[in-house]
Design a binder for these strands. Structure first.
Lengths: 196, 196
DNA sequence: CGCCTCTGTGGCAGCGACTGCCAACTAGTC
DNA sequence: GACTAGTTGGCAGTCGCTGCCACAGAGGCG
């Protein structure tokens, strides 16, 4: 790896750390880009070259999350149904967070800041649309169903992510105690009923 | 009603019409607030006094929608279960749109513009949180369920709105043909199975 | 080792959304 | 008809974000 690449990676990490620190200390809105750039030791212009928007300073990890859901879903065997495959994808994506404590801080920041939450939701919606064909291929064909396959796939995706949000909200309410995936299972069970 | 109030209402309508026209003609991002204000015959400052953000120029109807879902849900008889009550609330909220054509244009604009979509999703998430206690009171208590009532209520809400999004996406794909509520029923059926 | 090239960086000016402040105006009141 | 109070508009300023250009330093070459 080049010297250039190494220094750049160092700068990126420094920016991310500084940003998360300042955002949690004094709030997202109250922190200016100029402040983050200055304290991280880079120019404002460079900061915007690395991260396109202020929200990306927090949501960078979310991009990995989104990407991982997609790749994991693709890797599932063909005979796994949509619900199971999506659950596996969420589980895999959640495992990227090194420490749950870091995840808690980051998720809470996103959850409590309007603009961050909006940015996150926007990315998620885009992910959902990407996954539609993948889910469509896994729909249970044994039971004749009404409506187009696309609508049904979208409904499954909306439900999965809706239940994931429900689990996340409760998880944050309880300060990250308990397993997020267990809460997700509870949420899905509440909607679909207990099944094998 | 005062003369003041009347002229103000007139100005508001003029601004809304101008905004929707310009947004659909040349796109949301490509249209500046200055342009809308000028063509509507008011100052920029006044425009921002009426509408806090650029997104509100489109999403104003969404606010009614959101409010109507809440009030309708509250008005449902106590013995109506959560799913049915929420369906009724959505149906009532959808009926506010005078012409489906206007609704189509507005929904499509929101659906295809990233920032508008993010703003809409943010508002909806807030609505969901408001509705949690109302749904919680309507959860089916006849079957013992795992997990906290709050989580289950959030899951139901997430699913309902997730399915609504699925229906909306398909509805927009088909240029607004068919009944949105029928599509919603299809989506819910795909998730929960056909029930009485 | 010295030179050259080329990528990456920083500064600057500028745009657009949005806000606070103040002055001018005018609808409502007595 | 004058006074008051709420409305409006303009101005300046902040903040996120972008295009442009000059410069420095890293990587490749003889």
């Amino acid at each position: 790896m080049n010297l250039r690449d190494r220094t750049r990676q160092l700068a990126v990490q420094e920016i991310l750390d500084t940003a998360l620190r300042l955002f949690t200390e004094q709030g997202f809105e109250a922190t200016t880009i100029a402040q983050v750039a200055h304290e991280a030791g880079v120019s404002q212009r460079t900061l915007f070259r690395y991260f396109g928007t202020k929200e990306d300073l927090v949501g960078g990890a979310q991009d990995e999350f989104v990407a991982l859901v997609g790749t994991t879903l693709r890797e599932q065997p063909d005979d796994v149904d949509a619900w199971t495959a999506l659950r596996e994808a969420l589980a895999a994506a959640l495992s990227v967070h090194a420490t749950p404590l870091d995840a808690l801080a980051r998720f809470r920041l996103i959850h409590t800041t309007a603009s961050l939450r909006a940015a996150y939701l926007g990315k998620r919606v885009r992910l959902q649309e990407e996954l539609v064909p993948l889910v469509e291929a896994r729909l249970d064909g044994s039971v004749p169903a009404a409506g187009s396959a696309t609508t049904r796939a979208r409904a499954v995706l909306g439900t999965v992510f809706g239940c994931f949000d429900a689990a996340m909200a409760t998880w944050l309410d309880h300060d990250g105690e308990g397993d997020l995936l267990d809460l997700y299972d509870e949420a899905v069970a509440a909607v679909r009923g207990a099944r094998a």
